[in-house]
Design a protein around this nucleic acid. Structure first.
Lengths: 382, 382
DNA sequence: CCGCTGTATGGAATCGTTTCCATCCTGGTG
DNA sequence: CACCAGGATGGAAACGATTCCATACAGCGG
């Protein structure tokens, strides 16, 4: 390999073009690597410091020099390498985003919010999905730390150790949607799930429903901070406040998979044909409830009313359209990114940011049918 | 700022701990920056080269030394910086992924496929959304080039210049889902949309439908390579093959927004109450068709049959469940990533990878109703 | 006893930036 | 005319890894 001199007007290099024998050893073709700041400096006949000054607009540069540099930049199609800069400045300009599963509509909304905010702040987003697997989450966080991201936004699933290690490594962390109680020192952006569930229960109770089923997520020893814990706990509290003793039998939990959700919904609706309403704690569970109701020939809302937490696009397409507790996924993502990047003050004192939810009333809930319908329904049920 | 000597067993440094006056100037607290390979070397009393050898397993190292190094690594919680490594090796280990909108279910599926493949190959994924805006896309590509990503996977929207510039900068590019005809040199992974549309048309024709509406996307001068062009063109061809002259009036195009899709669907169904089936070219258009049909009190499939391209989760939840042409979004993402990272041969010869589609038959299509129903329906319509 | 092979190791160059600092020069002021 | 402020500029030192190369030493055959 040999460098060839540039024969242009400046007498300097024409750029970083080199000649190199191709693999077959027969034809030779020019191979160009990306131009560096040195190439630009050489071509513009200035020092690298001057090029840097022109490009970053930091120091004083004479107009003539600036023009020469910019021309060289254009001619060489020079793009400064973020690697060199990051190494020197100790900031990469990118943040990590760890969600459960990007195809989940809520995660996707949240990601969209993060992307929107990151874009306005000029940051890149490194995305990965942990699939609710703490080990995978830990590995992802490890790799993000290696990448020296400026910060991490996560819907956390695992235990605290890895997150604490990340913070010790100097990476800022903000949780979204969930906040493990064992990590109170890490700031978080949450939805007001309690208010959402409460409004749903009150709405159903207001329609006259007395026996309301709850489809929740498995988190038996769930800390109070967890969404699973909050929703179920609030469900019980809200019922109690209304003077409705919650029957243990009406609360069913499922793992976060379609199959498990379906099984849970089927179990609940078959076991308790006397219930007149169901509150699903996630959109997966809502989906399962709808499908099971359809399978059992239960009319919505005539036979059973359904509300679910998470307003996903299909809620409107359902027949009837589904009443849902809308949680501001996009806003949460945006806010989390803001807290991470431009609100270190809030990062210090650890109170979570809580965004409001909204009960979106559509057509899936009706007044409790005059005739409880236990007989009629048990006839239909298998 | 002052370094303090480590007083441990080795007599070396205890790590990169420094003392620094805090902002208020009152309390002094230890501030630790991330350990570097030098800190490890010092602590293990070896050279940096040896540390590197231990960690990358490249050269010969005596067991005793290896143990000392590993201990130092543990004690300092050392994580090699990807920046330093990337700068030296000229590979960042990350790829860019440019989609239209991450909340779009198809984009999300594709992204999931890319993530899955990237994970198996140890690559990171930098995600951004171009929102169908060529200018935004161009800016994103520019920034990805600055980041020196190893490659880019994109659902392209803009013109060729920027992509060619990226390739000139040495970044490999693979297109997914769409392949601008003006860039035949860039490899691509596509769905067999033609076969999908054809099977849908044949299915509808087989059910007896003669007047089939088409809801497509705007791309008037769309190059044949574009999905918009392919779907519409195939629709016409397939009709013609069946001896059904396509009426211009039955083909409507919309921009890729909910409003535009809704307007298009409403226009079509109101203007042509005589049509008995609709083929929607995207899931947004399918959604619009369903909502409009519901609004016009058209029963599906009794009054109008609906098929759409793209099988999204809500298709199954619709009532009736929607017949759809499933396109393997996840597989396309996975494959695109494979082509990008481990199939340079395929990258050379530019034939696109085409993955099969599948017509998923559900309940939204029925035989053409005996009575065309023009009278009855026009009565219902407004 | 000499030279050779091969393992174990450390020093130093390199990757592409930013930025500190020294130098040079110009024009204004005493 | 000497001096100085300050604008323009270039050299060189980081930043944190990898990797080439030189060195040191042990074992061994001739």
């Amino acid at each position: 390999m040999e460098t060839i001199p540039y024969s242009g007007d400046m007498g300097g290099w024409g750029g970083p073009v080199r000649w190199e024998a191709s693999a077959d050893g027969v034809c030779e073709r020019p191979v160009s690597r990306a131009a560096t700041i040195k190439d630009v400096a050489r071509r513009a006949e200035v020092g690298v410091a001057t090029v840097s000054r022109v490009l970053s607009g930091s120091g004083p540069v004479s107009p003539a020099t600036r023009e020469r540099v910019l021309r060289a930049v254009r001619e060489l199609e020079y793009r400064p390498s973020a690697l060199g800069r990051s190494l020197k400045t100790q900031r990469t300009g990118s943040i990590g985003l760890v969600v459960g599963e990007i195809t989940d509509p809520f995660c996707a909304e949240l990601a969209a919010g993060v992307l929107a905010c990151a874009r306005t702040l000029g940051e890149h987003v490194l995305l990965d999905a942990a699939h609710d697997d703490p080990a995978r989450e830990a590995e992802i966080v490890d790799r993000l730390v290696e990448q020296r991201v400026d910060g991490i936004i996560a819907i956390p699933t695992g235990h605290g150790d890895r997150w604490r290690a990340a913070m010790r490594a100097g990476v800022a962390v903000v949780f979204a949607d969930r906040a493990p109680a064992e990590l109170p020192e890490i700031p978080s952006v949450l939805a007001d799930d309690a208010a959402g569930v409460r409004s749903a229960v009150e709405y159903l109770a207001g329609l006259g429903h007395r026996r309301i089923g709850f489809l929740g997520t498995t988190a038996p020893g769930a800390a109070p901070g967890t969404d699973a814990g909050v929703r179920e706990a609030t469900f019980r509290t809200a019922l109690a406040e209304r003077g409705l003793a919650p029957e243990e039998d009406l609360v069913v939990r499922a793992r976060p998979s379609r199959d498990s959700a379906f099984a849970a919904a089927a179990g609940l609706l078959q076991r308790r044909p006397d219930l007149t309403a169901v509150l699903a704690a996630t959109h997966l569970l809502g989906e399962a409830a709808v499908l099971v109701a359809r399978e059992l020939d239960l009319r919505i809302p005539a036979d059973v009313s359904i509300v679910m937490v998470d307003d996903v696009p299909w809620a409107e397409l359902c027949d009837p359209p589904l009443t849902a507790v809308a949680r501001p996924g996009r806003d949460m993502g945006y806010r989390a990114c803001e807290v991470l990047l431009r609100d270190p003050a809030r990062r210090e004192r650890g109170r979570p940011v809580v965004l409001p939810t909204e009960l979106v009333i559509r057509g899936s809930c009706g007044p409790r049918t005059g005739m409880p319908g236990g007989a009629a329904r048990s006839a239909r049920t298998r």
